[in-house]
Amino acid sequence: MKRFKNILCVLESEEDCHPILERAITLAETNQAILTIVTVVPHITVDFNLFKDDPDIDLQTIMENEKKEKLDSLVKSFLHKIKIETRTLSGVPFLEIIYDVLRNGHDLVIKMPEIADWLDHLFGSNDMHLLRKCPCPVWLIKPDSPKSYHNILAAVDLDSDDAEQLEASQKALNLQILQMASSLAVNDFSQLHVVHVWDAPAESLMHSPFIKMTKEEIDDYANRVKDQQEEKLNTFLHDAIDSQVGNMLDYLKPNIHLIKGLASQSIPQLAKKIEADIIVMGTVARTGIPGFIMGNTAETILNQIHCSVLAIKPPEFITPVKLEE
């Protein structure tokens, strides 16, 4: 994987947590990184008159201490490999996690998705808040995720705006997506897939009876757009080969998918078709509009997939969450 120095692993349940623990510990060991494992305890809101016979009782502290003991017990068998810090956080889960990232400079958050059988999608409310607002990459690992991934899907977006700064930012984000997906594929001996979804926006308008265009003219337009998109993808991959990703791409020989359609539909469909174990993707819109934290396309994709995800922000992303002074 990309070199990480300060990893935060979040455990919400002691059940089925060993896959994520092993993944976090192996990653920290490989990167010689600091590893912190936390759990978030919600604030207890009860009528303390129930405990009037023992006014000194502090349920919040008791619960936090119990959680800390369980964390220490969980990591005990791994302490011969690496030094691990454990602690409990208290409050709204996604906020406390982001606060911890801001306070301690974590450069990766690893956690399992929220366990909620009633959801028709994998990621719950706290997960989505993290994907929108956490300043560092967020890796959400399914509880039943295989120990080693077989198929990794890197989703890149090559349709940049005209603004030069935004175009440079998007290129940097795409390269980071490809780098992380490639290094994970090398580590896990996985098949890497790279997908770019494109659309010919004027094609549907050309079919209007008010616009007299022949089928050949419409097809010619669509083919020209496809050629432009293919050239964009080839240029991106060529630039990636010239960067630090190059050796990994030569070794991996990724499957390239250039798909016509809507990314919000095509990427989940492709993930299902290739049985992707994880999607590596960006989650922030490229519009630059203040407060527009996640693009609609990314949100729609995340609500449809049922595999793990490694979500990455552009280099200049600033979280709207602020530490209290």
Rank of each mutant, 00 (worst) to 15 (best):
M1N: 12
C9G: 03
E12G: 14
E14M: 12
D16R: 15
P19Q: 07
P19Y: 13
R23M: 10
R23V: 09
N31R: 07
Q32E: 12
Q32D: 09
T36C: 07
T39C: 04
T45H: 13
F48H: 13
F48C: 03
D53A: 12
D56N: 14
D58V: 01
L59T: 04
L59Y: 03
I62W: 07
E64N: 15
N65M: 10
K67A: 08
K68V: 04
K70M: 04
D72V: 06
S73F: 06
K76I: 02
F78M: 06
K83W: 10
E85I: 08
T86Y: 01
G91Y: 08
I97K: 05
I97P: 01
D100Y: 00
D100E: 14
N104C: 05
L108V: 01
L108Y: 03
L108G: 01
M112K: 13
I115A: 08
D120T: 11
D120K: 14
H129D: 09
R132H: 11
W139C: 06
I141G: 00
S145P: 09
I152F: 08
I152Y: 09
L153H: 08
A154H: 05
V156Y: 04
D159W: 00
S160G: 00
D162Y: 08
A168N: 12
A168G: 01
S169V: 02
S169I: 05
K171Q: 12
L175W: 00
L178T: 05
A181C: 07
S182Y: 10
L184C: 04
V186K: 15
V186T: 09
N187G: 12
S190A: 15
S190L: 05
H196I: 11
V197M: 05
L205Q: 00
M206H: 00
S208H: 07
F210Q: 07
F210M: 12
T214V: 02
T214I: 10
T214K: 10
D219L: 12
D227F: 07
Q228W: 01
Q229S: 10
E230Q: 15
L237M: 14
L237K: 11
A240W: 04
V245I: 15
N247V: 13
M248S: 15
L249G: 07
D250T: 15
L252R: 08
N255E: 15
N255V: 15
K260H: 10
G261M: 07
G261R: 07
S264M: 06
Q265L: 10
Q265T: 14
Q269I: 11
A271C: 10
K273H: 14
D277L: 12
I279W: 04
T287Y: 09
M294A: 11
A298H: 00
L302C: 06
N303V: 00
I305L: 05
H306Y: 07
E316R: 14
F317E: 01
I318Q: 15
T319Y: 04
P320N: 06
P320G: 10
P320V: 08
